[in-house]
Design a protein around this nucleic acid. Structure first.
Length: 1049
RNA sequence: GGGCUCGUAGCUCAGUUGGUUAGAGCGCGUCCCUGAUAAGGACGAGGUCACAAGUUCGACUCUUGUCGGGCCCA
């Protein structure tokens, strides 16, 4: 038993790791406690105050829909935002963050419809809206709590809600600017229409069902058959028809054109129908489909062919089959030859494509169908007043009568139905409000400001690059208000930005001493930019009238950084092809379009009328629209004699919700003094290229001439592990709130940071579950560092760390980590930052450095130079790692922070790691020679470990500590390795090491089994020749004996 | 059907201007340690770089096409 007690007594003399930092995180249990603590200390406010005098870096939150619990998509989005902002904050920026919610819109209205069912019809609009309001308010609260649970830092006490009165007023201000710039107009457009409910429907309210419908082929007689024949070449002198196919005969009265594809080949077919010889035009590819085995067709034969554009170029016309009207042959790219005849019946009042073709070619948006689904008086009396579906047989009979019905069959196809009434819907042109994207406009200059701009600024680039950016920005801000239109300033700004970048490219070329001189100045009528002796002038005319589309494309092409960069092409493509923006919706839950009509039906819509309503909404909310009179809504505003206030009627339409959320830059960025306009960044899923990004850009450019953001970052979508999209019914569906409650927020945050968010993000509960290992590795590594610092105070115990030591290597690795991780964060490559940090913990720190340092940390005297040196390194490591990980692991790192004793003066008084600044690399340069030595050290380790492994298998020598590692090196190498001393044995965990002269230039390793030759030290377990030499402690090495003796004193 | 985009080991990611046997971490397997211990260490097995043509002396890397996935439209 004496052996045991001896052993035990030696164990007591070791400096074994100690820490109160628990190995088990218990995130689910502990995170809420920490959250409460942050709330109590008001971490967000503390952080804002701490960065009060710092430059701002504002990420503007895109508002999620206030509907239901958060899902993984929200989790990714908000986490990315939070990590990015925390990084910028730790860089030294002030990062105010105001979260928001999109509150208006159809999904919420539907929820309320579901709740009240048929009762809803009797409820006044104001009441329905009240219900919607409460619903949105409720879920904004629910989501707020869920986001906060994730550790998202922000001004949760003052979020923005698109349904808040001040927000609504602000949206109307943006609208007023559009009215002012002459971009708002009203016109007819076909929308899905429910006859049973007599209302327009949104796409989301359509239910597609397979139904059997009529399918008819109609002969449209050419107006000038001879002309058509001559286009095709030689043909018998017969009348020619254009063959057209439709499944909705009732839309034929609205027919104004026939569309053909310019590139499709059309055939002139001679055929005999019911024994009558005829000529018809169809797409060549469809000749057989149309004629072969067709009822009543006795024979058919292609006479000639020609391209669609020939038909178009000839300006052909036809006679409407049963109306006294001529229609035109027009080109359209959506025409296909997969079904029908390749000639498409076009009724601009009854179809999206038809409408587009009509608009492009100057046709009327003619719609003879009333809101009750019956024909109006513009049609022949046999159709007048008839329900469109009842009109089908009438029209078919008429065609048969006129001998223009080529064929009539049935077809089963998918057709949209009203999801409430389950009745088929029709497309019907109705009056809608639009914003023109192609009308050129000039921005009116905002009111002058008293601030006098500096007259001239000069810079040498690249030295003054940062200064130049800031100073010119302020300068331009002052100038813009002073005397130039935003357009001119914008044009100038683009040129300046280009010049700055050119300049820095030149300056940082091979010749770093080369600088480019840049001058910015203002005269009475001109802005001047002088770059390298070249002068660019911008006068008032420089900001020429441009359309929204042009402005947006210019901004996307030049001013805005897109991450990833392909977003530029994507959003540009969308901008190029987008039609005018239809901003009206026929719903209840939204912001009313503030238009009034007089008794003649003329609309009252002026910038000031809109602003008058905005004023009312600002304190009463848009609910006032449904309760107050036009006179009350307009307040002091005098609409003039044509619009007597007591005779005005209110518009029933509301805004497209995108107009509201797209105006958040005004309602939030410009309205709140703690934020900036434009913002630094918008960060959302890539679906928002079409949505929020684009529409925010349009509203902002239309109202101010400036884009609302400098950078746009997009992320991909959650998919299943097989790469396909997820739906809630999937087995693999990951419920965000459930996962948080199972694993804790930090784990999910870490997972978010580990994936390349630019692509699709495969997700399953298993993927997240498996991620716990990575979290534990990081946590344990930090814990190991903490546990070895229990008796260390850098102020008094720090030691110099020579480069030619393993400690020196570790510090250099840490420097590299700080540099690389910072760069990764800076370029928003979070997954790269994560991997750098994780791999550093796993490899450099855990497997290599931490493992190697055990012997000296545990066995040396507490105050021994080697031990203190290692602790010096470890202290730096734990501080740096904690800071670098802080944007991701917000809870864990704050906990670690509390366990770091004796922080540096700049960190000492910070109550949370989240107030800290990023660590900086030591700045110590490392020579190539030094790197070579470290590389050699690691190579030697690899070789030694392989041999140890072999020895283990051959001779059962399981512990490296039983071995001596012999380095067979030449004299020069030996000289370089000498300073590494104990590192050479500790890196492989050997008991001892020695040098042996190599037989040649080669560097070799030999492992000696010392189980027989040396005794093992009872304290350090090392087998060494000096065990037994100390008379007082015969079972110890000299080193251990000395340590025990010192401790005993 | 169109625009943009992705497809490298079981998983998450690297692969620089095309150039020797395609890398890492995790996971997995085998083993070790029991003084980081519901920890730690070592070794090892995993990939025809979606597929097919083409350019080239040479392609994961360039071109074209095919297949499959995603977002947004039609």
């Amino acid at each position: 038993m004496t052996a045991d007690t001896t052993k035990k007594s030696y164990k007591d003399t070791l400096n074994l790791p100690q820490t109160a930092f628990p190995m088990e995180a218990k995130l689910v249990q502990n995170e809420p406690i920490r959250l409460a603590k942050w709330q109590q200390m008001n971490l967000y406010q503390l952080l804002m105050q701490a960065r009060e005098s710092s430059p701002k870096w504002v990420l503007h939150d895109g508002p999620p829909f206030a509907n239901g619990d958060i899902h993984i998509g929200h989790l990714i989005n908000k986490t990315l935002k939070d990590v990015v902002q925390r990084f910028r904050s730790m860089e030294g920026f002030q990062t105010p963050y105001v979260p928001g919610w999109d509150c208006h819109g159809l999904p919420i209205e539907h929820k309320i419809q579901e709740k009240f069912g048929s009762k809803l019809r009797e409820m006044p609009t104001a009441h329905v809206r009240q219900e919607c309001y409460q619903y949105a308010e409720h879920y904004a609260k629910v989501q707020s709590e869920q986001f906060q649970r994730l550790g998202i830092l922000g001004d949760w006490a003052h979020p923005y809600l698109t349904m808040a009165p001040e927000y609504e007023a602000s949206t109307l201000e943006v609208f007023a600017r559009f009215v002012e710039n002459g971009l708002v107009y009203k016109k007819l457009k076909p929308v899905p229409w429910s006859i049973s409910n007599q209302t327009a429907l949104a796409d989301a309210e359509l239910e597609y069902k397979d139904v059997e419908d009529l399918s008819i082929f109609v002969e449209f007689p050419a107006a000038d058959s001879a002309k058509v024949r001559s286009l095709f070449g030689n043909a018998p002198p017969q009348e020619v028809s254009f063959l057209v196919w439709t499944t909705t005969p009732w839309t034929l009265p609205g027919n104004l054109a026939i569309a053909v594809h310019p590139e499709v080949t059309y055939a002139l077919v001679q055929y005999s129908r019911n024994a009558q010889e005829r000529l018809g035009v169809v797409a060549e590819d469809l000749v057989n489909t149309v004629f072969k085995s067709r009822r009543g067709i006795d024979s058919f034969q292609v006479l000639a062919t020609t391209k669609g554009h020939a038909l178009v170029d000839a300006n052909l016309e036809y006679n409407h089959p049963f109306l006294d009207r001529r229609g035109r042959i027009l080109p359209a790219l959506y025409v296909t030859t997969t079904d029908g005849t390749g000639l498409v019946h076009t009724a601009p009042g009854h179809g999206e494509d038809d409408y587009a073709t009509g608009i492009t070619n100057g046709l009327d948006v003619y719609c003879p169908v009333l809101h009750n689904g019956r024909f109006d008086d513009s049609v022949p009396d046999y159709l007048r007043g008839l329900n469109v579906f009842d009109a089908n047989p009438v029209i078919i009979n008429k065609l048969r009568e006129l001998n223009l019905l080529f064929d009539e069959t049935k077809i089963t196809h998918s057709y949209p139905h009203d999801w409430r009434s389950k009745k088929p819907v029709i497309l019907r042109a109705t009056e809608q409000w639009f914003i023109s994207v192609d009308k050129p406009f000039s921005l009116s200059s905002p009111s002058p400001d008293a601030a006098q701009p500096a007259e001239k600024l000069q810079f040498d680039i690249p030295a003054d690059f940062a200064e130049a950016r800031t100073a010119t920005k302020q300068f331009l801000g002052a100038v813009a208000r002073q005397q130039f239109t935003p357009d001119t300033v914008f044009a100038f700004r683009l040129a300046l930005e280009e010049a700055l970048i050119d300049a820095i490219k030149q300056g940082t070329g091979l010749d770093r001493s080369k600088t480019v001189h840049l001058e910015v100045s203002v005269s009475q009528d001109e802005l001047l930019l002088v770059v390298a002796g070249r002068t660019l002038k911008f006068d008032r005319a420089s900001g020429k009238a441009q359309s929204l589309r042009q402005r947006a494309l210019a901004a996307v092409a030049q001013g805005i950084q897109m991450i990833p960069d392909w977003g530029r092409a994507r959003i540009a493509g969308m901008l190029e092809s987008r039609p005018d923006w239809c901003i009206s919706r026929q719903r209840a839950w939204g912001l009313p379009i503030p238009v009034f009509y007089n008794e003649q039906g003329h609309p009252l819509l002026t910038p000031d009328s809109v602003r008058a309503v905005a004023k009312t909404f600002a304190h009463k909310g848009s609910a006032a629209w449904f309760t107050d009179s036009p006179a009350d809504l307009l307040g002091d505003y005098d609409p003039g004699p044509n619009f007597p206030k007591d005779q005005l009627r209110k518009e029933k339409d509301i805004f497209d919700v995108w107009f509201e959320s797209g105006s958040s830059w005004n309602a939030v960025l410009r309205a709140r003094p703690d934020l900036t306009f434009p913002s630094e960044m918008y960060l959302e899923g890539s679906d928002q290229h079409r949505g929020w990004f684009q529409l925010s850009l349009l509203t902002s450019l239309g109202a101010t001439g400036l884009p609302p953001f400098k950078q746009v970052l997009t992320h991909g979508f959650i998919v299943k592990t097989d790469g396909t999209k997820v739906s809630k019914s999937d087995k693999e569906y990951v419920t965000a709130t459930q996962e948080i409650n199972k694993h804790g927020a930090d784990l999910l945050r870490l997972w978010c940071c580990s994936v390349d968010y630019q692509n699709d993000i495969p997700t399953s509960p298993k993927v997240i579950q498996e991620f716990a290992d990575k979290y534990r590795k990081i946590r344990n590594t930090l814990r190991y560092l903490l546990s070895n610092l229990y008796d260390f105070n850098p102020a008094s115990d720090s030691r110099d760390v020579p480069q030619n030591s393993l400690d020196g290597w570790a510090l250099a690795e840490l420097d590299q980590l700080i540099t690389d991780t910072t760069a990764a964060f800076d370029t928003y490559q979070l997954h790269r930052a994560f991997r750098l940090l994780h791999d550093f913990c796993a490899v450099q720190l855990s497997a290599l450095y931490g493992n190697a340092m055990k012997d000296r940390l545990y066995c040396e005297s507490p105050n021994s130079p080697h031990r203190r040196r290692s602790q010096t390194v470890m202290h730096k490591m734990v501080v740096a790692l904690t800071k670098l990980l802080a944007p991701m692991l917000v809870f864990t790192d704050d906990e670690v922070w509390e366990h770091i004793q004796h922080k540096s003066p700049e960190d000492a008084n910070l109550p949370s790691v989240h107030l800290a600044l990023l660590p900086k690399p030591s700045g110590q340069s490392v020579s190539a020679e030094q790197r070579h030595d470290w590389k050699l050290l690691m190579d030697l380790r690899d070789q030694a470990l392989l041999q140890l492994d072999a020895l283990k298998k051959e001779k059962g020598m399981n512990k490296a500590i039983e071995a001596e590692v012999v380095y067979q090196v030449d004299d020069a190498t030996r000289a370089r390795l000498e300073p590494y001393g104990p590192d050479l044995e500790d890196l492989v965990g050997a008991g001892s090491y020695s040098f042996q002269k190599a037989q040649g230039p080669a560097v070799g390793i030999k492992i000696l089994d010392r189980r027989e030759s040396y005794k093992a030290c009872a304290r350090s377990w090392k087998r060494r020749p000096d065990v037994g030499q100390d008379p007082q402690y015969p079972d110890l090495t000299a080193r251990d004996a000395a340590a025990v003796r010192a401790a005993a004193k």
